[in-house]
Design a protein around this nucleic acid. Structure first.
Lengths: 208, 208
DNA sequence: CGACGTGAGTTAACATCATTAACAATGAAT
DNA sequence: ATTCATTGTTAATGATGTTAACTCACGTCG
């Protein structure tokens, strides 16, 4: 038995019952082994959970990479958004795991290899945006900057939906997602808006 | 001892060491009592954690409500965004708790009173946006729709920052936050963009 | 061939966890 | 004075992550 045999079972347990369902004893039982044996391959439960997170990023990157089949910057840009949305809707538990706070996994901070995977996903977005700026489909506001804005919006909307705050089914949400994207791409303000942006007040001081 | 005495200590424990630091024994010890005594006031640990979530929403609503001191729709709109950002940056652990998945707390689904608090926060955003549409500062794209878009973007950006993915300090992030808001308010596309939106390909089928 | 070390498993144990059952003390109301 | 609800207690159950000490199989080298 080695690491590669353990990870799939850990993912299964996580998909079935969430993080707390991934217990060393239960995992060992599914592998036909006793709990301390797992410590031959992983230093701790935390290390196993981090591997599940890493797997989530791998799966996400796999969905995104299919956007490279697009033949124009616009197509690849569009397919990137679709890939991200599809990943989130098809693998909601993995999507959730991607954004789990470190302490939820018992870790103080994310290890370097995980940070690298995170940066990789971000870099993919950056590259698709840069292409579109060069093709003059997007305004030259900085590829990283636009990319971050788009990622933040997509992630925020998806995570709100996955928490069940929006009372709608998946098909309805796909429409909402696309409509919301249209809004941020084209803007939401009238000419009157700009005039109000001078002399805005500061937020009052903290309360407690 | 009653519920009102327990909650602050539960919050303290959570702020110090995260959700898993809130243990019945530890909490009881801090209150000068033994663990089973807590069950006189709360049915379970889950119920206590949900109360901490509820407290997070209360604190958030408190920050938002200060936006009502603005004297114009534009001011109140701006202060709402500032209030949300300030709440997240001043109370990051509470902000995180607001968006904790239910199973993280050991709960299958959120209770109705919590859902009501969530809707209340959403409603506040809606109302501020509606005001701005009526004042013709925002385009008439639907108050709920715009509100959701703005909330999603703000939440996504903040949660990405709080996870430490952006390598910057709080001051730098405040700038990024405002710049990103400017981008979604004014749009990011060139006139060329629209022409590319016809005949976009579908994402290929699922992989696994 | 035998000695040795290494890798991978075992059992037993420890401390901690949430939760429950059974019981005690306190104080107010009839 | 008795009754009853409230609010604690101790003891126990079963689960958790993790460690220590041990066993067993296997490959390598003298």
């Amino acid at each position: 038995m080695n690491r590669r045999d353990i990870l799939p079972h850990a993912c299964d347990l996580y998909l079935q019952g969430g993080i707390e369902a991934v217990s060393m004893r239960r995992l060992a039982r599914d592998l036909g082994v006793t709990a301390p044996a797992l410590y031959r391959h992983y230093a701790s439960r935390e290390e196993i959970l981090l591997e599940v997170v890493s797997e989530s990023y791998r799966l996400c990157a796999e969905h995104l990479s299919r956007a490279l089949s697009g033949r124009t910057p616009a197509e690849r840009f569009h397919l990137t958004g679709e890939g991200y949305l599809n990943f989130a809707l098809r693998h909601p538990k993995f999507y959730e795991m991607m954004h789990a706070p470190a302490h939820t996994l018992g870790a103080a901070v994310f290890p370097a290899d995980l940070m690298a995977r995170m940066d990789g996903v971000g870099q993919f977005f950056n590259d698709r945006v840069r292409e579109c700026i060069e093709a003059e489909l997007l305004r030259p506001l900085g590829a990283q900057e636009i990319s971050l804005t788009l990622w933040a919006h997509a992630h925020g909307l998806i995570s709100i939906y996955l928490r069940g705050c929006l009372h709608m089914d998946e098909e309805a949400f796909r429409l909402v997602f696309h409509e919301s994207n249209r809004r941020i791409m084209h803007g939401m303000v009238t000419p009157l808006y700009e005039a109000t942006q001078k002399d805005l007040p500061q937020d009052t001081a903290a309360v407690a």
